[in-house]
Simulated assay, not measured.
Amino acid sequence: MKRNILLICDFDNTLYDWVSYFVSSFYKMVDEAVLILECDREYLLDDLRKIHRRYSDSEHPFALLETEAVKARFPGLSRQQQAAALDRAFHAFNKTRKETLTLYPGVADTLACFQRSGVRIVGHTEAKYLAVTDRLRRLDLNQYFERIYCRERSTSSHPAQGAAADLTSGNEVVELAHHQSKPSAEVLLEICEREGHSPENAVYVGDSLIKDILMANRAGVRSVWAKYGLKAPAGAYDQLVRVSHWRDEDIEREQAIREGAGAIAPDVTLEHGFSELKQILLI
């Protein structure tokens, strides 16, 4: 049984189905907001995409409150009053999130098994601070991670002052600057150095070939592709792109990275689920 291993885990679409959860929850909120605001649905989606692009974040907290549609419908109201007027829309998001945000089968048991076996586990994600710490708390994942590396938090505040409390439950969270992004090998090497492990004794598991696997390969870290994380309901990805912060130049840059990298081959592929990782680490 291997012990002196650093397991670095991506979160979204590796430990849980982020695309399905976020798209379904977001569009439930939008449909309810359209009724409250009495506005065109496509207009509101365009409005939200502008906010997401402004902050380079498709999960910008309470983006709905910064749209022109809300300002036009509720002129003169404070941010907190606007939030109260849109309570049904935010409730729709929260209700759907409770129904759809769940761990992939075997994730909790596998992480617990690694922990008992002496494998050190840290998380690395390009989600921002509040989004990732909230999900870890909801999914009861904090207990498995010694440290979490994520993007720096948004400057936007919760509409109710003091409501956005620290959600890390004791985990140390390292917020990475915007330029410290995947697939930079440097950021992964920095994580290994901080954790006191050589790249050769580290394993990175993630769902994205172009971001996770390419980064791990470049850093000399063993790469594990969570291929099962690519599955999503029909149409969900198109709905995500419709409101995403991705700009044309972002897509072009990613395409250039892909073309420059050539064939991206993981060291190991997890076809069906996260628990397959046991066969790799616990031998």
Rank of each mutant, 00 (worst) to 15 (best):
M1W: 02
K2T: 05
R3P: 03
L6Y: 02
L6P: 15
I8F: 00
D10A: 12
D10P: 09
F11S: 06
D12A: 14
L15F: 11
L15G: 09
S20E: 08
Y21A: 13
F22A: 09
F26T: 14
F26A: 04
L35A: 05
L37F: 11
E38M: 00
R41C: 14
D47M: 01
L48E: 02
H52Q: 07
R54Y: 01
Y55T: 02
Y55H: 12
L65I: 09
E68Q: 03
R79T: 15
R79W: 10
A83M: 09
A83Q: 11
L86H: 01
D87I: 04
H91S: 10
F93V: 06
K95R: 02
K95N: 08
T96D: 15
L103D: 06
G106D: 12
T110Y: 02
L111A: 13
V119M: 02
R120S: 06
G123H: 03
T125A: 03
V132R: 05
V132T: 14
L136E: 10
Y144H: 12
E146C: 07
I148E: 12
Y149G: 15
R151K: 07
S156K: 05
A160T: 12
G162V: 08
A165W: 15
T168K: 14
G170A: 06
G170W: 04
E175Y: 04
L176R: 15
H179L: 02
Q180R: 13
S181Y: 06
S181W: 08
A185S: 05
C192M: 12
E195R: 14
G196K: 14
P199L: 08
L209N: 11
M215N: 07
A219W: 01
V221N: 15
V221M: 04
V224C: 07
W225T: 05
A232W: 01
A236C: 03
Y237W: 15
D238V: 00
V243M: 09
R247V: 08
D250K: 00
E252R: 12
E252V: 14
R253C: 05
E254P: 11
E254Q: 08
A256L: 14
I257N: 03
R258D: 11
T269A: 06
G273H: 00
E276M: 00
E276N: 04
E276P: 03
L277D: 05
L277T: 03
K278T: 04
Q279W: 02
I280Q: 15
I283S: 12
I283F: 05
